[in-house]
Amino acid sequence: MHPLRKRRLILIIIMIIGVATATGFALTAFNQNLMFFFSPSDVQAGKAPENRLFRMGGIVVDGSVKRSDTNTDVWFDITDNEKAMTVKYSGILPDLFREGQGIITKGKLNAKGEFIAEEVLAKHDENYMPPEVAATMKKKPTEYIKE
């Protein structure tokens, strides 16, 4: 083969290998970091993974928020108006976190089946319902009766 062509071929092969490696890494990282969204009903039904981060969203149940007086721990229930799940979080909740508000949490289930949140997201708009939460709501909020 002509030396110039040979070099060009080597260059192209190196580039293809480079791009393929990058794609490989990207897809692996992608698979490891995909987070699924579940409603409290899904989680109660055992659909959520154990030992893996996932997102759970719903409406904060009125009167369910309990705060520790000695540290920043906080517990609250979120519901899709059918089932509810208790969430434990350590830290400062977002400004727009309040009872009756649609929120999304990110975290894991522990051995006791409690949801330990790493992050709590509330939208900066009081009339806003996260689309994921809106889609999984079982009944209209007015029909909801606390169990």
Partner: peptide, 11 residues
């Protein structure tokens, strides 16, 4: 419904 978090982008 899925989401891709910062760990993916960083890695």
């Amino acid at each position: 419904k899925i989401s891709v978090g910062p760990p993916y982008f960083n890695s």
